[in-house]
Nucleic acid binder design. Structure first.
Length: 790
RNA sequence: GGGCCUGUGGUCUAGUGGCUAUGACGUCUCCCUUACACGGAGAAGUUCGGAGGUUCGAGUCCUCUCAGGCCCACCA
């Protein structure tokens, strides 16, 4: 009996042992290179991975069968904040409370086993990567490339270090990038606070009273008649009593609150804009761990929340609050920890790219997008960019900047390329003396943001190969990924490639959707609706999981429905049984002998399968694997099994009446068609197709694995529309006979007497014997169409 | 507020302006036929979210509208 789990394990081992997926460095074949997404190491592969990696693998396997020398690396993304948080939660530690080098060591040690287990999950869904072409974004190879990228871009003048307001996570205590923000709906108090101008009151609404101390200006709209006379005057900030100017700015929304707004350094993005535009002074109210600074006097040391509470109380005491109400509003939080972000003035490294927005839009258009509409996400993102790329992070675990600073003049001292990878905290700078004469240097202790490294994946993978191959492998053929990281990974990779090479990193991009829960909601731990792919594989099989993943169009989200897994399972069993039947009748057949003379029904089938080959190939070329799957599934089940196999039984079982040649013709057609079906389905269901291939076909085909065999070739000569039409008509008669028997509650093997019109008999003369046999007609009479029980 | 996607029988889904609108699951009926009852043969069920329009002809194109989802912006 069919033990699918045993079969899957067996062939996975075989593929690994026989190095079926190995990239051939010496081959002269055309290369197809894939910029495989390095999954963020997170303990377990989740359903979203299984879904989108399977879709990418369909394409990879197809390309391999098309004869490409497939460059299909595998990497893991295991540096930076996500990994730091993983280790913190697994080991129940906090990096901030540990010695830096101890924490880094803890991460690196634990990653070894975590990474290994993690990769196993990807192998279990039969991801056909060449796992020997492997990188981990924290290893020396990647450190070197990432640091070199930094050095090169610095020399290009694309990087700068600047003290400026940056998006800051008080929980993780690091700067973060615009792309790492997420929306979250929170309830808070909106309070109307009284400011004074020469003893006259003005009312300003705010949700951030704790920032009063950092208030540097008050803004009104220039067209707002209510407040025209206020412009240019000064107002006293409540509680703190210092005075700030009242200025005008078009960005003020007259409708919101009282139409007067306070600007603090910094409450939100607009504050930052105003600070820059109006050259306002800087007042730092918050420390990097989210507490009030000394500036806040009696509130100093309190957390944001505590300070807010106390300030509201104090304002109330002095009767400075006119109104107070609960509102829900949407705030930006850090995607990794859900903490509302702050804007904090600090020194960070940036990649300057806001000036290149137009070029990036142009570059994005030059990529071939599958599906096309996904380009909107990239363009939308580029158009909305308002920050240069902040790449420094104030956390311990990651790739260090290869930089020291002169203690005296702050000159940037870069590592030399041959020094890389380097940790400036451990190693010394390449020079002994600064230009200014100083011999003291301060190492940079920030690390490079993980996206600044993972945006180099084409280089990380390609540079694992000998240098002479680099040009052949880059730009890469394909970037497969899911739509949620278009603004992160896709955009960042495009940026780096353009800055380094003035080239796009790939030709095609295929964007897959998400795996959703059965109700169509995003799976998440907090919702408790996570379905684990490991469990599904156990219950069904990897092929079933892939079958499910192939049922959604590229780019579309797919709710997880178990019935699709059941369909996959049935499909596997059906293939197994149909093959068993075919092989039973091929025992005495050798494909290498002379091709027999085909019967018309054989030609009918071959014509149909060739149409499927033609379409399937075109679909795969456009990354529309779901159409291939649907077509092959339909052909296999309805045309091949339910009709052709039934019809030829007569020829197979009764060679005496139908002739030996006729039997051979059926055998030839079975061999060709079944092998074609297997090959068309091999990219989607690699295990069962391999099993069936190995059972019989291998001894004639002489190719080690179905996955290294050739994709079926479309034979235009086999297409015969006339025969197809006639065959379909014959099938219709068979269907009518079946209908008749079913209606009369008779078994399908019941004998009947079939009467057909003279013209029909003449037209379908080639099929008469087949029709007679499959309908079990005792005789076929000439006359008005009818079916009768014998 | 801007952008994108989706809306087809009970459920999920195919559908490139043109014959009777796919297929699957579910439901109902029948059939243990020498590959398969984890099977086979049938049946019922939708008028394509809504309203206009273009066209000889629209689920398919256009406009508006309703509903859901995603991304971005806002977030005083």
């Amino acid at each position: 009996m069919l033990d699918i789990h045993k079969i899957e394990k067996k062939w996975q081992n075989y593929w690994e042992k026989e190095k079926i997926y190995k990239f051939n460095q010496k081959s002269k074949k055309k290369i197809f290179s894939i910029d495989t997404p390095p999954p963020t190491v997170s303990g377990k592969m989740h359903m979203g991975h299984a879904f989108s990696y399977a879709q990418m693998d369909f394409i990879a396997r197809y390309k391999k069968m098309q004869g490409y020398n497939l460059f299909y690396p595998f990497g893991t993304d295991d540096n930076g904040l996500p990994t730091q948080r993983l280790i913190e939660s697994e080991k129940k530690v906090k990096a901030q409370n540990m010695k830096r080098e101890h924490f880094i060591k803890l991460c690196l040690t634990n990653l070894v086993s975590i990474r290994k287990k993690y990769i196993e999950d990807f192998k279990k869904i039969a991801l056909s990567c060449d796992y020997d072409i492997f990188y981990s974004t924290i290893n020396d190879h990647c450190r070197k490339i990432s640091q070199l990228s930094f050095i090169q871009l610095y020399k290009q003048g694309r990087e700068y270090r600047k003290e400026a307001p940056v998006i800051w996570c008080p929980e993780c205590q690091t700067a973060i990038a615009q792309v790492e923000l997420e929306d979250k709906e929170l309830t808070t108090e909106l309070i109307d606070v009284v400011f004074q101008i020469n003893k006259k009151n003005i009312i300003i609404s705010t949700t951030r009273p704790e920032l009063l101390v950092a208030c540097v200006a008050i803004f009104v709209h220039p067209n707002d008649k209510r407040y025209k006379e206020l412009i240019g005057k000064k107002a006293a900030v409540p509680l703190f009593k210092f005075k700030v100017p009242i200025l005008k700015d078009l960005r003020v929304d007259m409708e919101k609150g009282t139409g007067i707004v306070m600007c603090c350094t910094f409450g939100d993005q607009t504050d930052v804009d105003w600070y820059k535009a109006h050259k306002l002074p800087l007042k730092t109210a918050l420390t990097k761990d989210g507490r009030m600074t000394k500036l806040a006097k009696k509130y100093s040391g309190l957390t944001i929340k505590e300070a807010r509470k106390e300030i509201i109380q104090d304002l109330k005491k002095q009767n400075l609050i006119k109104k107070q109400k609960q509102i829900t509003h949407v705030v930006n939080v850090h995607e990794r920890c859900g903490t509302p972000i702050e804007f904090i003035h600090s020194k960070q490294w940036f990649i300057k790219y806001l000036d290149l927005k137009k070029d990036f839009l142009k570059n994005g258009k030059q990529l071939n997008w599958y599906p096309k509409f996904m380009i909107n996400r990239l363009e939308n993102w580029i158009k909305g960019l308002q920050w240069d790329w902040c790449i420094s992070r104030q956390i311990p675990f990651g790739i260090p900047f290869p930089v020291w600073y002169c203690k005296k003049c702050d000159e940037v001292i870069l590592a030399t390329p041959n020094q890389l990878p380097v940790d400036p905290l451990i190693e010394k700078p390449p020079i002994k003396k600064c230009k200014c004469g100083s011999t003291e240097f301060i190492p940079e202790k920030d690390i490079i943001n993980t996206w600044a490294t993972s945006s180099l994946t084409p280089q990380l993978a390609v540079q694992l190969m000998p240098k002479k191959l680099w040009k052949k492998l880059f730009p890469m053929s394909l970037r497969p990924q899911a739509h949620d990281i278009i603004s992160f990974w896709l955009f960042n990779t495009l940026v780096k490639s353009q800055l380094h090479y003035k080239k796009n990193p790939w030709k095609d991009v295929m964007i897959s959707g998400w795996a959703l829960d059965p109700k169509g909601k995003k799976m998440s731990k907090s919702r408790g609706n996570v379905i684990e792919p490991q469990e599904i594989i156990k219950k069904y099989s990897a092929d079933c999981l892939r079958f499910w993943a192939s049922s959604s169009k590229l780019g579309e989200d797919l709710p997880f429905h178990e019935k699709e897994l059941v369909s996959g399972k049935k499909f596997i069993i059906k293939m197994w049984n149909a093959s068993k039947f075919v092989f039973m009748h091929l025992k005495d057949y050798n494909i290498k002998t002379k091709k027999p003379k085909l019967e018309t029904i054989d030609k009918w089938l071959l014509s149909k399968i060739n149409k499927i080959i033609k379409n399937s190939t075109a679909y795969f070329e456009r990354y529309e694997y779901s159409k291939t799957k649907a077509d092959v599934e339909n052909f296999f089940w309805n045309i091949f099994c339910d009709n052709y196999l039934e019809i030829i039984k007569d020829r197979l079982y009764n060679p005496k009446t139908r002739g030996k040649e006729s039997r051979k013709a059926a055998q030839f057609t079975l061999y060709t068609t079944l092998l074609t079906i297997l090959k068309l389905m091999a990219p989607i269901m690699p295990h069962i197709t391999e099993e069936i291939y190995q059972q019989y076909f291998k001894k004639y085909e002489k190719i080690k694995s179905i996955h290294t065999s050739e994709w079926p070739k479309y034979n235009a000569k086999a297409i015969d529309k006339k025969i197809e039409k006639l065959g379909d008509k014959a099938i219709q008669i068979v269907a009518k006979a079946r209908q008749y028997k079913t209606k009369n509650k008779k078994s399908l093997k019941t004998e009947i007497i079939l009467t057909l019109e003279k013209e029909k008999i003449k037209e379908l003369s080639d099929f008469m014997q087949d029709i007679k046999a499959v309908t079990n007609a005792k005789e076929i009479k000439q006359g008005k169409f009818s079916i009768k029980l014998k």
